[in-house]
Nucleic acid binder design. Structure first.
Lengths: 215, 215
DNA sequence: TATTCAATGTTGCAATTGCAACATTTTACA
DNA sequence: TGTAAAATGTTGCAATTGCAACATTGAATA
């Protein structure tokens, strides 16, 4: 998986961070990252540590929207962070974050610097992946019924995995959040699919029991 | 609104298209664009004319996902075009399309060419907008009830417009598609909102009748 | 202007879904 | 290892929603 500083050497990375007038911040576990960033339009990079983008709806229900590891990126525009439902929370002590003013990236004129061009292209590719992921989720969520949402999700994951089984990347609770459906209603429908012999579930391993021409 | 060739002169645009080994295709009204593009991972640009990204669900219901005018972009990765539910249809005779292999963009080493860097940055900004739009739609669609989806949509549009009224950009039918809800159920809920005195609707003009602190 | 087709408004009904509540199992960690 | 918290499984019930069907209005066009 591509990372934002791929193909940029350590010395060039240092030069890049100076060129873009970046700032570094350190956060302790469970502290909010966005509340200390004053700027309007930024790209952030997790330098060390781990953080999560959390959404809290008006009932107080929280869900994890994204998990951010080292060299993962976030941003006001690309992560809905201007929406008050969203926040980024550091999940480890001494989580270090690099903050870049997005305008500095766009307005920088140092096109002759290879490391700068490499950075832009990495960003472009990461954005492409983000768009693709969001399209996938939209294609799932816009299905009418819970059954269709589940099957569309499985369809995509089976294709990615290239086999007739997958392992859930997280919990069923998180999957229900991702599919934007009620967890118990999802469990009910998964049971239906099992009873009809379409899938088998053993822990986090889900097996496809019919030929769907998906791979 | 930023366009893909902004700040690139006509002669430089010609050089750019040669550098990226682009191909031009012409389509007649109602013909499918994707079915004639053989390549795996491309970015397309509407050069002249008009096209639409159409989604057809398994019941045969069609919905317009995106409207593409001159200098608008699309792509296999960024527009779900590998998903067989999607297609791009030319909506005017002699709609011209520029096709660029995405790898040519990423692997191009001509960093010293200003027009190439300008192009990359324009692409980056267009991608940023796309991500933001998809986030907005996700934030709407993941609301549980039809009422909450409608109100979230209005909230965003009122904020953008900076006033207590908006004009629907298209039809109510298209809005129901966008919100991924049944049209008649949406009409029913809009009526409820009217009856409760929260909004007023006159043709495509929708007025907010309560103070929501949105602007 | 007449005609056709798309968009809108409305409603009853059945199906789906969310919600609450609870038992059971698994996981995290003190 | 013991304990608390989180995740999972289950179910009844009420509310929401999709669907079908139809009338009405509006827009496009020959």
């Amino acid at each position: 998986m591509l990372k934002i500083f791929d193909n940029i050497s350590a010395p060039n990375k240092a030069k890049l961070l100076r060129l873009l007038e970046t700032h570094q911040f350190t956060f302790q576990n469970e502290t909010s990252i966005m509340s200390t960033i004053e700027s309007d339009n930024i790209i952030g990079i997790i330098s060390t540590g781990y953080a999560e983008i959390i959404r809290t709806d008006h009932n107080g229900n929280k869900s994890v929207i994204e998990q951010l590891e080292e060299e993962d990126i976030f941003g006001t525009e690309i992560s809905s962070l201007k929406n008050p439902e969203y926040d980024i929370i550091a999940k480890e002590n001494n989580t270090q974050v690099i903050i870049i003013n997005y305008n500095n990236i766009i307005n920088c004129k140092e096109n002759n610097k290879a490391f700068y061009n490499e950075f832009i292209k990495n960003l472009l590719q990461l954005f492409t992946i983000k768009i693709k992921e969001k399209n996938e989720r939209l294609n799932i969520i816009t299905k009418k019924t819970i059954r269709d949402k589940i099957l569309e999700y499985f369809s995509i994951e089976f294709k990615k995995h290239g086999s007739n089984y997958i392992y859930l990347p997280s919990t069923f609770t998180a999957l229900a959040d991702f599919l934007a459906i009620d967890r118990s209603a999802m469990t009910r429908e998964l049971k239906n699919l099992k009873d009809e012999g379409l899938i088998a579930i053993k822990g986090k391993r889900i097996t496809l029991l019919y030929n769907n021409n998906w791979f």
